[in-house]
């Protein structure tokens, strides 16, 4: 894969680098909710991936296609069912799960389409979120969740612990789990779930089908 004017911008987001680091070289990857294509470019240019995407916004899709990425305008809730089983080595759902109408169904579809599934989401169990709801008594607004309750696209928040429970219900195996601190740096120390659930601002999971 040639390096050219299309290399990732210098200020690449830490969470994207973290996800890109989980993807093996030369894999087939589908990024669901790929935005302007930053992660896809990173995967294509640095990991040599056959990288494809789905994005809801016309502006996002236009930006991706203009950058030469194979991206379709679509939606995680409705456009995943057309993909065949195990069509990709990795399917990525980055900061999108909480905005889907049927997160469980979406996750099941991802596990069907991808040999491995990488999911990142903001942790609603983080202490700052708990503080805002528990003590100030209003819906949390943080750097990761910047929307007021009445105009947020995020309709299905979960905590890290909730997510782990869901993986058990849908028969998924957790291959790796990383909590991300407020700074964006991953929490590398091995800690019990309650600790991650309280101090991890975001989480990045890699899953596969257990059976």
């Amino acid at each position: 894969m040639s390096q050219d004017q299309l290399v990732a911008p210098p200020a690449t987001r830490v969470d994207l680098l973290l996800i890109a680091g989980l993807v093996a070289e030369k894999s087939r990857v589908l990024d669901v909710g790929c935005g302007d294509g930053s992660l896809l470019m990173l995967l294509r240019d640095r990991r040599g991936a056959d990288a494809r995407g789905i994005e809801l916004s016309q502006a996002g899709v236009n930006s991706c296609v203009a950058r030469g990425l194979s991206v379709i305008q679509g939606d995680a809730d409705t456009d995943l069912s057309a993909y065949p089983d195990q069509a990709f080595d990795y399917v990525i759902l980055s900061q999108t799960l909480q905005a889907t109408r049927q997160p469980r169904k979406v996750l099941e579809n991802l596990l069907r389409i991808g040999k491995k599934v990488i999911v990142s989401f903001p942790n609603f169990g983080h202490w700052r979120v708990r503080w805002q709801l528990g003590f100030s008594g209003h819906m949390p607004v943080t750097e990761n969740m910047p929307h007021a309750w009445y105009d947020t696209p995020n309709i299905h928040f979960c905590t890290l612990r909730d997510f782990v429970n869901l993986t058990r219900e849908i028969d998924a195996r957790i291959l790796s789990a990383t909590a991300v601190k407020s700074s964006g740096a991953p929490m590398r120390v091995h800690a019990p779930w309650w600790f991650w659930n309280l101090f991890g601002e975001q989480a990045v999971f890699m899953l596969e089908r257990a059976s």
């Binding site: 056959d50 494809r52 016309q58 899709v61 236009n62 991706c64 296609v65 990425l69 194979s70 991206v71 379709i72 305008q73 679509g74 456009d79 057309a82 993909y83 065949p84 069509a87």
Partner: peptide
């Protein structure tokens, strides 16, 4: 969209914008 779904099901490389 029906074309795009069929292309995806066939494993083709596809971009789509409305």
């Amino acid at each position: 969209r029906a074309i795009v779904h069929a292309l995806n099901a066939g494993g083709a490389s596809v971009s789509f914008v409305e």
